[in-house]
Amino acid sequence: MLTRLFPAVAAVLVAVSCLTACGSSPGTAAPASGSGGPASLTVFAAASLTETFTELGRRFESAHSGTEVTFSFGSSATLAQQITQGAPADVFAAASPATMKTVTDAGLASAPAVFARNTLQIAVPEDNPAKIESLGDLAGPQVKVALCAEQVPCGAAAVKALDAAGVEVTPVTLEQDAKATLTKVRLGEVDAALVYRTDVIASGGKVRGIDFPEANQAVNDYPIAALTEAPAADLARQFVDLVLSREGRDVLTTAGFQVP
């Protein structure tokens, strides 16, 4: 049984490695040094980076043939928790300096660099039933507003922006993250929400984003760091470099991030 199974398994493995490694790399940098054997890189990144980092990971793999990049996207706080509990991550990209700080405080990363900034937008359903134009409109008594919970970065940012504008809003819900908040808008359950502009862009037109001036008072910094105990330290540093490079900045700005 095993002897018959082995050739089949081997064939599948060859085919899979071909899919990842034999693909032609379209006109990017030459393979980096020390990429002879298969290597893997694990990146823990905030959920709001799902689209951009997936794209950057694809480019990284093309540039480093034989390298496989694995992502774990999630709430920054949860990821930070996992890292301090010993999760085998190489790179951590957080949605707030505070969550990064728990990792640096634990001595697991040093000198994080801010690679992106995210600002809030008012997200409304396509037909904008409550006719929202400005932050002040969110205070209307009939307006159903969803905010992120204060414990998560987009919630903290929302509170900061509302405070700066002096607008008093009574939300119907405090969601656990930006995506969940946006879902409520997309389904029309709420009339408006405060989420990151990147989330609005990623939602692909089902939701309309409205800029407001007070957003500048609540800019969210995204720090990134290679972890000191990274199993693939070299690759980790190279990935951070890619994110901070012009190529990385292009990908991020296309998705709606501001770059420093």
């Binding site: 949860t78 928790q81 919970a149 414990q151 819900t173 405090l174 969601e175 656990q176 969940a180």
Partner: peptide
């Protein structure tokens, strides 16, 4: 619960929701 009823203290924030959000800042 958090998807359908959202999360608002006193109205829809049950213990598991409170636990989840507490994990974000204060394990």
């Amino acid at each position: 619960t958090i998807t359908f009823a959202g999360n608002f203290p006193g109205r829809t924030q049950t213990m598991p929701l409170a636990v989840y959000l507490a994990l974000e800042t204060d394990p």
